[in-house]
Amino acid sequence: MEHGPGDEVIVVGGGVVGLTTAVLLAEGGRRVRVWAREPAERSTSAVAGALWWPYRIEPEPLVGAWALESLAVYVELAGRAEETGVRMVEGLHAHMRLDGLGPWATRVPGLREDADGLRARLPLIDMSTHLPWLRERLLKAGGTVEKRVVTDLAAVPAPVVVNCTGIGARWLVPDPAVRPVRGQLVVVENPGITTWLTSVDHSSGVSTYFFPQPGGLVLGGTAEEDAWSPVPDPAVAEAIVARCAAVRPEIAGARVLAHRVGLRPARNAVRLERRPLPGGRVLVHNYGHGGAGVTVAWGCAREAAGRACPAA
C-alpha cells in the first residue's frame, strides 16, 4: 500500500492501550510508529491481573460501551488462546449484585446472580503472551515500535499524534488530574485452582482476588490512592496471601514465584479527545483508564483511531 506524508501516525506509549490503538490504525491503512519509553513487558499493562471487568474507571455510560466492544474482541481471540493469551474462565465476583451495576451488565453473556454474588465466564488475559502478540500483529500490519523518550507532544514529528502514555500523561500533557492507584500482587505456584474470584470493597484500599494464569496463580491486591512506590512491601504481600488463603486454604502453602507492583493511571474520567497541534496537525488523547485499560482497550482504540483518522 502506498502511503502519503499525511498518513503517518505516531502513537506515544506502548502499553496495552497504545499497542491496541496502533494495531487498529495500521490495519486501517495508516503508517504507524509506536514511540515508547520502555518495552511493553515493562509497562503497567504487564503487571495487570487482566480479568475483563470495568474496575476503577469512569464515566460508566461510556465505559460500558467500550468494555462491551472489547469483550466481543476478547471472546473471538480466546479461540486462539495459546497465540493471543486470552482464555475464557469461569469465576465469581463475591457479594456483588446486578442492581449495583450499569446497563452494560445486562449485555454480558452468561452473567448471573446467586447467593454468593455474580458468576460469569469472562476473558482472562495472560499479558506475558498478549502484549508480544499485539506487537507482532502491529509489525505484520506494517507498523514499528521504537524506544523513544518524549518530553513534548507538540514536538512529535507526525501529522497525527496519539497520546497513550497512561500515568506519564501527568507530566507530559501535563495533566495533574492523572494520579496513581498503586496495586500490589503476589504470584504463587497454582495449587490446582481453575476458577477466578474477586471480593472488592470499593471503600477500602485492599481487596481479595485470585486469577489462574499459565505462569502461576495471581493473588491480589491493593488500591492505594496517590502511592508512587514501585517496590513491593513484604508485609502487604503477606496480607494478600493471607486474605486469599482465607478463601482457599490451599493457597497458604503455595510457593511464591514473584511480587509485582503497578501504578494504575486513574482519572476522574478517561480522556479521549481530539485537539489541534501547530501547523494543522492533530493530537488525540487516549489515557486515564484506571484499573481497566485491558477491559476497554479495543473500544477506546476504535474511538481513538476514528478521531485520529476519520477514515481509519
Rank of each mutant, 00 (worst) to 15 (best):
D233G: 06
P176A: 09
N268E: 15
A155F: 02
R281K: 08
E38Q: 14
A235P: 01
W228Q: 01
G183H: 08
L139C: 00
L185S: 05
M88L: 15
S43L: 09
A120I: 09
E82Q: 13
P59C: 03
Y55P: 00
P109C: 04
G253S: 07
N268R: 14
D152Y: 05
E83K: 06
C164Q: 02
R137N: 04
T208L: 06
W133C: 03
V12P: 05
F210S: 07
E83N: 07
A72T: 09
R271V: 13
V34N: 02
K140R: 15
S229M: 04
I251N: 05
R264E: 08
R37E: 15
G299C: 05
G100Y: 07
P234G: 03
E38L: 08
H3A: 04
V294L: 14
C244E: 06
L124D: 00
E189V: 12
T129E: 00
G29A: 11
G142D: 01
V17T: 12
G100D: 15
I167P: 01
V75C: 10
V282L: 11
K140L: 10
V11C: 03
A26C: 09
L118C: 10
L92G: 03
P59F: 11
P5D: 09
W196C: 11
G183F: 10
K140P: 00
R107V: 06
E69G: 12
G14T: 12
V236D: 03
Y287Q: 01
T295F: 01
E224L: 13
D201W: 10
P265L: 07
G253T: 11
G291H: 04
R275L: 15
T222Y: 08
W35D: 03
V187H: 01
A245G: 07
Y287F: 09
G220W: 06
A169G: 15
E58S: 13
E250P: 10
V173S: 03
V236Y: 08
W298D: 09
L92K: 02
V294M: 07
